[in-house]
Design a protein around this nucleic acid. Sequence first.
RNA 1: CGGAGCGUAGCGCAGCCUGGUAGCGCACCUGCUUCGGGAGCAGGGGGUCGGAGGUUCGAAUCCUCUCGCUCCGACCA
Length: 445
Amino acid sequence: MRLTRYFLPVLKENPAEAQIVSHRYMLRAGMIKQQAAGIYSWLPMGYKVLRRIEQIVHEEQARAGHISLLMPTLQPADLWRESGRYEDYGQEMLRITDRQKREMLYGPTNEEMITDIFRAHVNSYKDLPLTLYHIQWKFRDEMRPRFGVMRGREFLMKDGYNFDLTKEDALHAYNRHLVSYLRTYERMGLQAIPMRADSGPIGGDDTHEFLVLAETGESEVFYDSAVTDIRLGEREIDYDNKAQCQSVMEEFTSLYARTDETHDAALFDAIPEERRKSARGIEVGQIFYFGTKYSDPMGATVVGPDGTRTPVHMGSHGIGVSRLLGAIIEASHDDKGIIWPEGVTPFHCGIVNLKQGDEATDAACEHIYKALKLLGLDPLYDDRDERAGAKFATMDLIGLPWRITVGPRGLKNGVVELTSRRTGVSEEISAEDAVARIAAIYADI
RNA sequence: CGGAGCGUAGCGCAGCCUGGUAGCGCACCUGCUUCGGGAGCAGGGGGUCGGAGGUUCGAAUCCUCUCGCUCCGACCA
């Protein structure tokens, strides 16, 4: 993309309403525009990152064998009366009446609807196990939306639901989700620690929240510092292998790591003092096993091998997709702007033309731009007639992980500059080498 | 929902106390000079001061109501 033809309304000054760094940078980098309290438009670059995060979620769900579908944002109230949550959910649920005076609601989650779909079409244990998920906008009428997309009222969430014959199978689904979520977050350059949590209005017995450590996090967390040394990394996972998923789950959850809701001071104090940490965290996902809480009242049953009909065991699993943008920025920025991890960056690299209009630099930039495009990469070429300082400041703000700087001085010696946004380290290499390096960096991401 | 604030040009703000018909910086447009870390000079465009009502000869300014937004708290992916 050429910057002169793109829509990237960057702000030089900090908007007054933004209190935390991710909110400030998302506004300043022209990623979002607030339309009402807790409701945002996604401008092109913000939308690009949002879609990239969605794509990673989809890829990892597919890898775990989960099936994608799409349910509507608006739901009939009657479905929620069946589970009893229409009354329980309270003011946080946005209730709407249509022209026929039918009661509707903007879905805050989809347990009821997915259960309705399941019971309509699945009757036999032979169709299990089944995990269905979607990525859809949710609405929760928070009393106090804040921190930009971190606590919006409208937000994009991946929510998945597993249906299993037995508790044992459902717990495997739980473990499978835990492992697939770990991989999902790692691909986004995040360390999200599973922590034992409270179930809240979803209900259920087993639940873990995934927390990204950040000073601006809304949750207080307590953990054994050894958990931050564990990585899933590149290890091969067979998501159908119960024992393997179980062992990864145990590896990641046996050390102490809890939110303030479930914090146990006695257990915490048993950790060696130098490993005892308390910090703040951003919740970016949660997984639940809740048995037959919905299947029982809503009649989601299957006929088992013995011929009897039994309610299925369920769980639900969520990733805060839109919130992740905020979380990633909170975890990866400096005083000049965002630093995107390669996995989610809106453009693979930036090209800065230091002397727009100069025949040699223009030609060199065009050459690099086209070479990267031919390799299937997506560069952002700053072809504005701006001074170097302004171009650097924009690139730093929007946080592309790599920058190729092209100026007459370097070109005389046959080199351009390749700079890492994260380390600030620059190398002077030929244009061909710079293109090759960018291609190599993204080859396995 | 309790407490506290704020709505004046796209963004950041001053003016309000003490009424006299709107200003600064950035951004934007034109020209010239600049050009390796958010340039300089000159000129220019843009605002029914959130909305409604009231007081007054006269309201951004005072009064009443209302809408919106932000912050602290309780609640939450």
